[in-house]
Design a protein around this nucleic acid. Sequence first.
DNA 1: CGAATTATCAATCCAAAGATGTAGGACAAA
DNA 2: TTTGTCCTACATCTTTGGATTGATAATTCG
Lengths: 232, 232
Amino acid sequence: MREFKRRSRVLLIDDNADHLRGVKELITLESCYDVVGTTTSANIGINLAKKYRPDIILMDINMPEKDGLQAIQEIEKLDLGIRVIALSGYDDADLIFRAMKIGAKGYVLKTMASAQLIYAMDEVAAGKIYLPTALTSRFFEYFQNSFKEETKISSEENLLTYLTAREEEVLDLLTQGNNYKSIAGKLFISETTVKTHVNNIFQKLQVNDRTQAVLYALNNGFANRRLSKIAV
Amino acid sequence: MREFKRRSRVLLIDDNADHLRGVKELITLESCYDVVGTTTSANIGINLAKKYRPDIILMDINMPEKDGLQAIQEIEKLDLGIRVIALSGYDDADLIFRAMKIGAKGYVLKTMASAQLIYAMDEVAAGKIYLPTALTSRFFEYFQNSFKEETKISSEENLLTYLTAREEEVLDLLTQGNNYKSIAGKLFISETTVKTHVNNIFQKLQVNDRTQAVLYALNNGFANRRLSKIAV
DNA sequence: CGAATTATCAATCCAAAGATGTAGGACAAA
DNA sequence: TTTGTCCTACATCTTTGGATTGATAATTCG
């Protein structure tokens, strides 16, 4: 067993050269991380990431040339196990949300104390995900808001509640693209029975055909409630 | 201007009477909150919430009788501005995620130090959302995971890209539940033309009927890319 | 220009879906 | 026991949907 663990390697990407230099100094002097590269270009950064395989990348996400979020996404897609911490000047909830959604392991404001940056790196290096408390609160406000509308919709009268258990089973199979024969086979009942159920479903959901029934089901939280209004 | 702010009022809901008593004592003795009610029943709790309008509710979400999450949802639906903190014995990522999704303003483990509970209440009373750091990390792992699959899918070959502009228009109308006649009317073309397009769509998407085509479209980011695999 | 793609329309045929009415048995609530 | 709901099933009929073939005009592209 090794007694010491390898010093974690860090890559810095920030279009602001001054800030880049400052962060490099900070890390070099006051932490146990090795800076393996610095660049002001997101594209170059991605290439450096492939080349040097750092453990951590500090990525400024407010860059004019190339979107930092996109860069994070590309790095995540490489699937090299590189953990990216987003650096930003803004505590904008939407930015935080998007960064975390695409896989950032942390989000730190440039205005925060340098100790906090080091701490974030420590946490992330340890495999955790780190968000400063203030930003976490911001994130959750945004997060919960994005579901509020949805909740409102689904708390309106939902015609799905009128369906019997059996009808729900049938509808479930409909939402998987099955036809009458297939449903009959899966439920071990005759095709005509399925037709009866499906017709009853149409009546209850006030639709004219199976496609509309399926759409109603999906849009009103049937079974796999996977709809959210979240988009990157 | 008032110099002192009103002491915040708290309602406790926990099916475990012992724990309930313990928490009540803790809050009464060691915090500045008024316990306005305690109950072991989620249903009664909801009624007490309506009656006493507490500022905060501590809600055990691991109750056999009635699901605590559901109770939170109902309280949120009341829209009385009551801020609910979920209490749980488990740091299960899925539980945490669902609690936060439906609007819990905090999530605290029963095993945590009592000081942490008080702190959480302070934060929540101040209008923030509070999650212990360890649970935040858990939450984000789950959160990011739920988007990983999606990213993977959308980066795989998407048969939708083979569709022509006109076919996309037709498919769009299909995903709105239109039949041939309706689509023909909306695009000012004959029904047979629509049939041709639809058949070509089937070929390209490798499906057998319109329902499957619609499902493929929705699951592969057609138009409204709002699908995520998150479920309550 | 010539070739390929696309959008349009038609005829035909068969299969599937949808509408409607009827009915027996199981089961639970009143 | 009666009433009602639910699940099952069938017959019949109409409409819609889907497959196939073929054809014309417009557009795009090399």
